[in-house]
């Protein structure tokens, strides 16, 4: 009996050894471990054996069974790994084929720029506020020291709303700058104030590569006790450093805006020529980025703030130019043409 078991074992293992695929492996356990296998028959017939033999044969038969089962597992594992390896070799993909494209959406480059700028100022304690685009002459001009017939009005050609008051004047316009929001904030908020005011502005101007009748600006205002021109320089320098990069030179020069005194213009070193002079910067080496200054005492006073108590700075800049400079865009009209071949690049 034991000898028979030994034979079963060696035949089975020999046959197992010769099997070379999972498919062939399927019949092997039926033959050697199945209900009708020799081994099962022996195990079933154990009860017919004498007691002393039964013990020996039983123990050995079980040992053989375990041995065969383990061998099967091992063989199966070996074969599976071999098949995986072979299949991996067979199923190589051409990774240079194009991806399965997910449709993607993009924020408009102007929006992206505005959010980036707002984030910089928010991190310095400024709050984002907005105001109306259709505005009273008062907030756009009068409140900002630009009375009727002031030459500064000539530099901001205005689109007027078709509506007249009793004295035949047109009191409503499309705001020519976001500084109108500054005038409103001075009138409505109590110091300390730190705000930035992004939005659309309008000019009565024909379109060309550097002009559109609508574009974006952001103005800023800080009012508190003890604010100085050193603070406006520092704040704007920090903005320029973060937006244009650490090593970009910044220049502050005297300029004139009716609603500030002293007035400041901030320029950065030209992005193309780095100061050597080129077409982009008109050979000056500098690119004007924004206007700023200490808010004019009359503007504070008109809005109900006492310039003897508070000092204030204000600034304003065009947004469109910034992505133009950053990405080398040479025509501002592209922003509003809504050509998706342009927009999806950002």
């Amino acid at each position: 009996m034991l000898k028979q078991l030994e034979e079963i074992k060696s035949t089975a293992l020999q046959e197992l050894e010769d099997i070379s695929s999972i498919k062939e492996l399927k019949s092997w356990p039926v033959r050697y471990l199945g209900k009708k296998s020799e081994l099962t028959k022996i195990l079933r017939s154990l009860s017919t054996l004498p007691l002393n033999e039964r013990k020996n044969v039983g123990a050995y038969a079980n040992k053989v069974k375990v041995n065969l089962e383990n061998s099967l597992d091992q063989k199966e594992q070996v074969l599976r790994e071999a098949e995986l390896a072979a299949s991996a070799k067979r199923k190589v993909i051409d990774i240079t084929l194009p991806s399965r494209p997910f449709p993607t959406g993009h924020l408009h480059p102007i929006t992206q720029t505005l959010y980036e700028i707002c984030d910089i100022f928010v991190s310095m304690g400024f709050q984002v506020v907005e105001g109306p685009e259709v505005e009273w002459d008062y907030y756009n001009f009068e409140a900002l020291n630009i009375p009727k017939e002031h030459p500064a009005r000539d530099t901001m050609s205005t689109s007027w709303i078709d509506c007249e008051n009793e004295s035949g004047e047109r009191p409503m316009l499309l705001r020519t700058h976001t500084t109108s929001v500054t005038a409103r904030i001075i009138e409505t908020m109590q110091p300390p104030i730190r705000v930035v005011e992004p939005g659309k502005v309008y000019r009565y101007e024909a379109s060309d590569a550097t002009h559109t009748p609508m574009f974006y600006q952001i103005d800023g205002l800080a009012v508190d006790k003890g604010i100085t021109m050193a603070d406006v320089k520092g704040t704007l320098y920090e903005f320029a450093r973060r937006f244009f990069g650490e090593d970009r030179k910044v220049r502050f020069r005297c300029d004139y805006f009716p609603f500030v005194e002293p007035g400041i213009e901030m320029a950065i070193e030209c992005l193309v020529c780095r100061g050597a002079g080129c077409r982009l910067c008109g050979n000056s080496g500098w690119i004007e980025i924004l206007g700023a200054g200490m808010t004019h005492p009359q503007v504070l006073e008109r809005g109900g703030l006492d310039p003897e108590i508070y000092t204030s700075f204000a600034f304003g800049m065009g947004i469109d130019r910034l992505p133009m400079l950053r990405y080398g865009i040479d025509d501002i009209r592209l922003f509003y043409s809504s050509d998706i071949r342009f927009l999806r690049q950002f």
């Binding site: 310095m124 304690g125 709050q127 110091p191 300390p192 104030i193 730190r194 800080a222 508190d224 006790k225 003890g226 604010i227 100085t228 021109m229 050193a230 603070d231 320089k233 520092g234 704040t235 320098y237 920090e238 502050f252 020069r253 005297c254 005194e261 002293p262 007035g263 400041i264 200490m294 004019h296 005492p297």
Partner: peptide, 29 residues
Amino acid sequence: VDLIEEVARITGYDKIPDTMLSQPLPKQN
């Protein structure tokens, strides 16, 4: 302030230091 601008621009804006706002942060709404 008009005189102060004269002092600043003739002396040079680059002679004015760059400082960050030092006042407490205003409330945000």
